[in-house]
Write a protein that binds this DNA or RNA. Structure first.
Lengths: 343, 343
DNA sequence: ATGAAAGCGCTAACAC
DNA sequence: GTGTTAGCGCTTTCAT
């Protein structure tokens, strides 16, 4: 273990004060160009590596942004993180990711880790398993800016970026209706999670607009996994009056449903239409290609990061938090297209 | 911004020394149960949050493991991280992820960030764009344990976990040969990356075993993206003697190739067989389901984390680094099955 | 079982 | 333009 070199080593070498070295390294305006040059040269020669732990302890700022995501195995989040990174990098910030594994426990540990590491802010997407938001309030109480994205919560009282989930589900459902499907099932995620509650609302609104009843039997509450999607679909198929279309709350759910339909020998989109949600990469490559909703991932990440910088610049502390709502985009592929217009 | 509460606040409240509080909080054996109890109670009441920055500065240990992954959008890495987390958590360590976006530049920044944050170790999978490993050597030189996984490099001289890439490609190719395919193309990733070079070796070995020549025209060096897979496949189809099977270095590459084949109206696996690599989630849901190679992701993560703990326990510093090689598993689905045995 | 004191490496307020 | 000084909040000898 090589002895760590500090600014004092550089200072000694150059016969100057450690503070001078610190300033030179940080490009402080009051330091002469010659000194800066000399300091940098010695620093390089000695393989000096700044200790941001010490710097953070002293300055109270780490220039690190913590991002809490439910799972690194979902492309969607990786994509949002890209957006966050782009904006963060431009401001000289680094992004660190913690995956909560969809549990409240994991989320608490993530917050704890970030708090201990004294990140300058936290951007989070709430885990499926989270019911109590106390740990998020903790961040607020400690003055760590918090911004929520995608899986947001108005209760939290912090800025957020999300898509218009209700509108998205409305679009998806209306699209199925316009294709002539009439008995539309809905496979949701846990309804205690706001975004899934919102989406259900949009779905129902579309049904209502077309004068259709909200048949309780056609609503399934899954856990947004492939397996759960398949199980829900199977249950739906056992119904006395099975659905002729299904609106899924997630692409993976749709994948499971599709699998169940295939096993049952049901033609998609001929007999049953299906639409997903999230525009995951695989959707355009499966057979039939999955219609879905695009959630503007990069944009979402960028906006979330921007909200953080606004927050930390103190631009709207105290006033009501901003909620940015992005407009979703309907992506029509094959799985939901019954009507062939032209050819 | 609530005033931060420190161990001194707790100490004052209880009329004891800060050192006592520190010990109590860390469950030091020499502290009486009564004192510990009292300290914990006050800590809770004051919402005390330990400042690990200060602790790290003093102790020189952060109990944080940095993980460098090329991209958070690849399921494979998310899965490996799960394995890492499991082992790390058991040792009281936290995992922080940095995505390098497949570039050497990103990788350098990640190393820099981890170095500054004084993580206790780094687990890394080398980016596609990385040619110079100097930044990784830096970690070693500074005494930060480094373990490589998946995209490893023997040159780095550090412990690693990978799968037997050569054997994997051999299995994939042999499987195609056993299915009766004879003109087998190979879509590789950049050949300066060791794992892809290794895989190519395995592929050639299989060809050789079956007495087939390594036709240069059948080898394409793509960049492991869907688009590149499609482009390579198109080029292959334009050959005077197009291939009757294609072995891809990655599932996403295979996806692109599949797309190109579909556009060209070629039946898979009837006319052309195809096999991928990585066992990405989507593979079993596309049509035809993609044959592939499983890479033991969770296991890989666990082993990598274990290697780190061995390293930091000083078990084999100085001696030659251990390289764990996991055995891959051939997963036969539809895309490569020409021969229908039974039914 | 607890206290006293020193210091990890850096930055920032105040000198000059 | 640079030096001095005083910590940031914690851990860790060494005492007692």
């Amino acid at each position: 273990m090589a002895k760590k070199v500090t600014i004092h080593d550089i200072a000694r070498e150059l016969q100057v004060n450690a503070a001078t070295v610190s300033r030179a390294l940080n490009d402080h305006p009051a330091i002469s160009a010659r000194t800066k040059e000399a300091v940098r040269k010695v620093a390089r020669r000695l393989h000096y590596q700044p200790n941001s732990i010490a710097a953070s302890l002293r300055s109270g700022r780490s220039r690190i942004l913590g991002v809490l995501i439910p799972s690194a195995e979902i492309t969607f989040f990786g994509s949002v993180v890209h957006g966050i990174e782009r904006v963060a990098a431009a401001e000289g910030y680094t992004v660190l990711i913690y995956q909560t594994n969809e549990s409240e426990e994991g989320e608490r540990k993530g917050v704890e880790t970030f708090l201990r590491s004294r990140v300058d802010g936290v951007l989070a997407s709430i885990a499926k398993g989270t019911r109590d938001l106390a740990h998020l309030q903790d961040l607020k109480r400690r003055g760590v800016p918090l911004v929520l994205f995608d899986r947001v919560s108005a209760e939290a009282g912090v800025p957020s970026v999300s898509i218009n989930d209700s509108a998205a589900a409305f679009m998806a459902t209306e699209h199925l209706l316009q294709q002539g499907y009439r008995r539309i099932a809905y496979i949701s995620g846990p309804l205690h999670v706001p975004i899934w509650k919102e989406r259900l609302k949009g779905h129902r609104k579309a049904l209502k607009k077309y004068g259709l009843p909200a048949d309780r039997a056609l609503l399934r509450e899954g856990d947004v996994s492939i397996g759960s999607g398949a199980a829900c679909m199977e249950a739906l198929l056992r119904l006395p009056e099975p659905p002729d279309a299904v609106c899924c709350v997630e692409d993976y759910t749709a994948l499971g449903a599709l699998q169940a339909l295939r096993r049952a020998g049901i033609a998609v989109p001929g007999q049953v239409g299906i639409i997903g949600f999230a525009n995951e990469l695989f959707g355009q490559y499966i057979e039939p290609a999955l219609s879905t909703i695009d959630q503007q991932t990069i944009r979402m990440g960028e906006e979330a990061a921007r909200l953080f910088f606004e927050l930390s610049a103190g631009k709207f502390y105290g006033s009501a938090p901003r909620h940015i709502v992005l407009e979703p985009q309907l992506i029509i592929r094959q799985s939901s297209v019954k009507i062939h217009t032209a050819s």
